[in-house]
Amino acid sequence: MILLKDLTKIFGSFLAVDHLSFEVPAGEIFGFIGPNGAGKTTTIKMLATLLQPDSGVARIDGHCVYTDPEKVRQVMGYMPDYFGTYDNVTIHEFLDFFARAYRIPAKTRQSTIDGCMELTDLKKLQTKLVSSLSKGMKQRLCLAKTLLHNPKVLILDEPAAGLDPRARIEFRSLLKELRNMKKTVFISSHILTELSDIVDSVAIVEKGRLVVSGDLQTISRLSSTQNHIDLRIRIHDKEQIESALGIVQQTENVVNARVENDSILMEYNEEIDKMYLVLKQLVNADIPVTEVTSSQSNLEDIFMRVTQGEVS
């Protein structure tokens, strides 16, 4: 749905985006992450047809952002990181303005506006002035505006920035709803814990260059210097927990094994498929194992591992 090939942007002598290439499949929520100054907003602005690329190709739904910006805007909804609103107009008038701008026919305009207001829970507030809305409500309003022309692709630049925890949770559920509506969502955010729950795949950029892209599991595997999983083994009989710890510690590739309540926690420097070797040792020693859980690296871990905290 979104394709970037060698996308480059230079401001004077400053290389903001350096031959960026990746692909976003249709219907996915795609996280676009990187430290400050990594070139995220520049890339997003090029995708949103607001900035002219210096070289390379960017396509949305098959349309080139450079040669066919009008067609791209028809299939794309863009929500910037910072945006303003018009004072002295109500929520309904604000949405009506954008519906007219998107050239939604008069016959269907009202129903479209109503639908978007319901989705973003703004229906009750439609007669309120935009200037009186809170930050979270304004975010919702901007999202409603972005959805008016039923775009296939949504490009959201830091949509959760500045929101309180409740508003963030609500916004996340809205994104999930958008995924259910088969929209492709391209989202950039600094709040990685928020993203890790909802994104299908990510691209991590640093100093304008792509560091890694793909689904979370693949990235985790690619980004690890060694195979690594955290294991938690729950033992039914507490009296046997010490002997179990001894067995585990003697097992190959297990490090930092320790007891926590009724479980043994350990780091296992092997692939997840080899986990049975640890269990086999315990079962052979008649240790009553009741539960085994493994956790691979989360988005934050991956991010910290692959980036060096540098800005271009």
């Binding site: 602005k45 949103a48 047809t49 607001l50 863009y78 945006f83 701008a101 505006k145």
Partner: peptide
Amino acid sequence: EGKTYDLLVTANLSSGD
């Protein structure tokens, strides 16, 4: 300055409009 310009452009309003 009011950060609404980008919204207008991406709403497919041409510079002439």
